[in-house]
Design a protein around this nucleic acid. Structure first.
Length: 158
DNA sequence: GCCAACGTTGGC
DNA sequence: GCCAACGTTGGC
C-alpha cells in the first residue's frame, strides 16, 4: 500500500526552464533530468511517489520564488541523459546496468494566483524551518512539510 | 580518512 | 559580477 501523499519543492532557473515552459509542454509534463546531486537523487529515486505535490520554484530569478504547483507524474527511473555522450549531462562513469542518476516526471497542475517571492516566504514565521529558508540551502529537490505546503498554497492564493 | 583545492549554486 | 556556502575530487 502506498504511503500518504508527500510534498516537495523543485528548483528551476526560469531562463532555462520556467513553469510556463512546463505548462506549455506536451501533457504539461517533463522529465526532471540533469539533477547531479546525490541527496536530490536519493529523494527522487527513493521517496517521491506518483501524485505527490510539488512546489515549482524559480531560482536565479528576479525575484526568486514559487511560480507554480506541480505533481510527481511517474515512478523514478534512470535519467536517460547520463548515457548520451552528446548530452551535457552525460556521465561516463555511469553504467546502464547500474545507473547513477535517477529522475521522476513532473506535471504542471495549477498556476498560482499570486507569485510568492523568497522574501515573502522568509518573512513568514511559520515557514522559518522550511528547508528553502535555511541559510545556504542549495538542494534542487527538497522536502516540504504538509503544514508548510498548506501555508505556501494559501500565500499563492490557492 | 583527512583536508586543501576547486567547482557549483544561487541570493544579492 | 561578487561571494558565501557547500559538495566533490584527489593527493597524501
Amino acid at each position: 500500500m502506498p504511503s500518504a501523499k508527500r510534498y516537495w519543492l523543485v528548483k528551476s532557473e526560469p531562463d532555462v526552464y520556467s513553469f510556463d515552459h512546463l505548462w506549455s509542454d506536451k501533457g504539461r509534463r517533463t522529465l526532471w533530468d540533469g539533477v547531479r546531486n546525490y541527496q536530490a537523487r536519493n529523494t527522487m529515486r527513493d521517496d517521491m511517489q506518483v501524485g505527490d505535490g510539488v512546489l515549482f520554484y524559480h531560482s536565479n530569478a528576479k525575484p526568486p520564488g514559487v511560480a507554480g504547483i506541480a505533481e510527481v507524474a511517474s515512478k523514478s527511473y534512470p535519467d536517460p541523459t547520463q548515457f548520451d555522450p552528446a548530452h551535457k549531462y552525460f556521465d561516463e562513469k555511469s553504467k546502464v546496468e547500474d545507473p547513477r542518476w535517477w529522475l521522476v516526471d513532473i506535471r504542471a497542475k495549477k498556476k498560482v494566483k499570486r507569485f510568492v517571492s523568497l522574501d515573502e516566504l522568509k518573512a513568514n514565521p511559520k515557514l522559518s524551518e522550511m528547508a528553502l529558508c535555511q541559510r545556504g540551502s542549495r538542494l534542487s529537490v527538497q522536502p516540504v512539510r504538509p503544514s508548510e505546503w498548506r501555508i505556501v498554497l494559501a500565500m499563492c492564493g490557492l
